[in-house]
Simulated scan of single mutants.
Amino acid sequence: MQDSTTLKSRRRADYGYFLKYRTRWSDNDQYSHINNSVYYHLFDSIVNAYLIAQCSLRPQASQSIGLVVSSHCQFFSPLSFPQVLDLALRVNKLGKSSVTYEVAVFSEDNEYPAAVGGYTHVFVDSSSRKSAEIEGQIRAGLEKLFLQDGRKKSQSKL
């Protein structure tokens, strides 16, 4: 995980995939800002949207699935309904069977993120739950988002 100063200084150009999200009244908590738990819903939404649309993942038919083994989020400024958000995705680490995603949440038309977080997926066989290598279209799609400081990074083996 990156330090807070690095994450807060991220810009839209540091990410390779974007998804719009229109906040809902139910996203707000009693303090009139988006509840912390909603951010993890947003992270899950953009990661899985990318895996399905860009990596040809078919969750119900796939022999391997990604399980979340760790997650984090740092908050920099509040967001609330009725804002429209831009979710941004990048891959910070890509190993043999694991991938670490970073997601930034931007208010529409803002260059600085309101929150940055993400999680690590470990891919496993859907039946046995034993570690499975990330291969084929999934790996190719993830490699497209494998960035560090806005530059494409060479593949690492974890």
Rank of each mutant, 00 (worst) to 15 (best):
Q54M: 11
N48G: 00
A61L: 13
Y50N: 06
V68Y: 02
L51T: 05
S56C: 03
Y31R: 10
Y31W: 14
I52W: 03
N35A: 14
V38A: 12
F43Q: 09
D44Q: 02
A53S: 15
N36K: 08
R58N: 11
L51E: 03
P59R: 03
L42M: 15
P59Y: 09
L67P: 00
N35S: 14
R58D: 11
H41V: 14
N36L: 08
S56R: 11
H33T: 11
F43S: 07
L67S: 02
L57I: 07
Y50L: 03
S64E: 07
S56W: 00
P59D: 04
Q54N: 10
R58S: 09
C55R: 03
R58F: 01
L67R: 01
V47S: 08
F43E: 06
Q54T: 00
H33Y: 13
V38H: 03
S62I: 02
L51R: 07
P59V: 04
N48L: 01
A61C: 04
F43K: 07
P59E: 04
R58T: 10
Q63T: 13
L51P: 07
A61T: 09
Q60N: 09
L51K: 07
R58V: 07
A61M: 10
S62L: 01
G66V: 05
D44R: 02
Y31V: 13
P59Q: 06
V68S: 07
C55S: 08
Q60G: 02
R58H: 06
N36G: 08
I52E: 12
Y50Q: 05
Y31M: 15
L67D: 00
L42P: 04
S32E: 12
Q63H: 13
Q63Y: 07
A49R: 11
N48E: 01
V38L: 01
Q60V: 08
Q60T: 12
S64I: 13
I34M: 15
H33Q: 13
Y40I: 08
S32I: 02
Y39D: 06
A61P: 00
A61E: 15
I46P: 06
R58A: 10
L51D: 06
S45H: 10
V68N: 04
Q63G: 11
R58G: 01
A53V: 01
P59N: 04
A53I: 01
A53N: 15
S64W: 02
A53Q: 15
Y31S: 11
S62K: 02
A61I: 00
S56P: 00
Q54C: 13
Y50H: 09
L67C: 08
G66H: 06
V68K: 02
S37K: 09
S56E: 14
Y50P: 04
L67E: 00
V47Y: 02
Y40Q: 10
Y39G: 05
S45N: 10
I52F: 03
I52Y: 03
H41S: 12
L42R: 06
Y50G: 04
Y40L: 15
S45R: 13
S62V: 01
Y39A: 05
N35D: 14
S64K: 07
Q63D: 15
V38Q: 11
Q60R: 12
S37Y: 05
A49Y: 08
N35P: 11
Y50I: 06
Y50A: 04
V38S: 09
I46D: 05
F43G: 07
Y39N: 06
I52M: 12
I65M: 10
Q54W: 00
